[in-house]
């Protein structure tokens, strides 16, 4: 397996001088194509900050991130947005759906942005919504869906563009255990059936048990790595 993402010596500092906070202190990270990696750690360990560096939502103070063959540290804001659109998928802990758009329209957004026609985007969006078990909910507004359903639509939006890497930032944090498990099962299925590379931040070990690997962070450093399955 080849590494689809390779981060080297990642540092992230906030503030300056006496107020400086050193959140990531030189992390090396890599994930292979098709791998499902969980990043775990206590609150303040730096797991979300690491994910933001890996997913190019943030720029590391030091270090490099290589996604595929692309070194993204020199990207402009516009390039980053375009790269995220075409290469990465995101699942946020608060679902992050646009409240004014229907479920289908939320999923269509990145497809339309990629230049799909309305009809193509709608057809693809409906297929993906069906695949996450939300058949017939195309026209529902987010407010008309439960938390678990919203998160599944969020997953559908993230995978609709067939991203190389899917990032999930505590996707179960706002869900009850049943809904949380459904979302985890969905992600596991994506990984096992379609070989989707997934990097997930979670603080609940039970949800990380379906992953290939768990990386444990503590105080901005990788302290332990668990390989659960090949």
């Amino acid at each position: 397996m080849s590494a689809i993402i390779q981060a080297t010596n990642i540092h992230r500092r906030f503030g300056e001088g006496a107020l400086e906070t050193h959140v990531l202190k030189g992390i090396d990270f890599s994930a292979d194509e098709g791998e499902f990696v969980a990043i775990m750690g206590k609150s303040g360990a730096g797991k979300s900050t690491l994910m933001y560096q890996l997913s190019i939502l943030d720029e590391p103070s030091e270090g490099t991130v290589l996604i595929g063959d692309t070194e993204i540290s020199s990207f402009s804001e516009q390039d980053r947005t375009s790269f995220r659109l075409n290469t990465l998928g995101y699942i946020f802990q608060n679902y992050a759906l646009v409240p004014d758009l229907s479920a289908a329209e939320n999923v269509m957004l990145p497809l339309l942005m990629r230049g799909n026609s309305w009809a193509e985007a709608l057809e693809n969006a409906q297929k993906v919504i069906d695949s996450v078990g939300m058949e017939g909910k195309y026209n529902n507004l987010p407010a008309e869906l439960s938390g678990g359903e919203q998160q599944r639509i969020s997953v559908a939006r993230a995978i609709a563009g067939k991203p190389k890497i899917l990032f999930a930032d505590e996707p179960t944090a706002n869900l009850d255990s049943v809904s949380g498990q459904q979302v985890i099962d969905l992600m596991t299925k994506l990984n096992s059936d379609y070989g989707q590379t997934i990097i997930m931040v979670t603080h609940e070990r039970e949800y990380a048990m379906g992953c290939n690997r768990i990386i444990h962070l503590e105080d901005g450093l990788v302290v332990h790595e668990e390989r659960l399955r090949e």
Partner: peptide, 8 residues
């Protein structure tokens, strides 16, 4: 979030 998911 819109910018995050790649919306110009």
């Amino acid at each position: 979030i819109l910018k995050g998911i790649g919306i110009d």
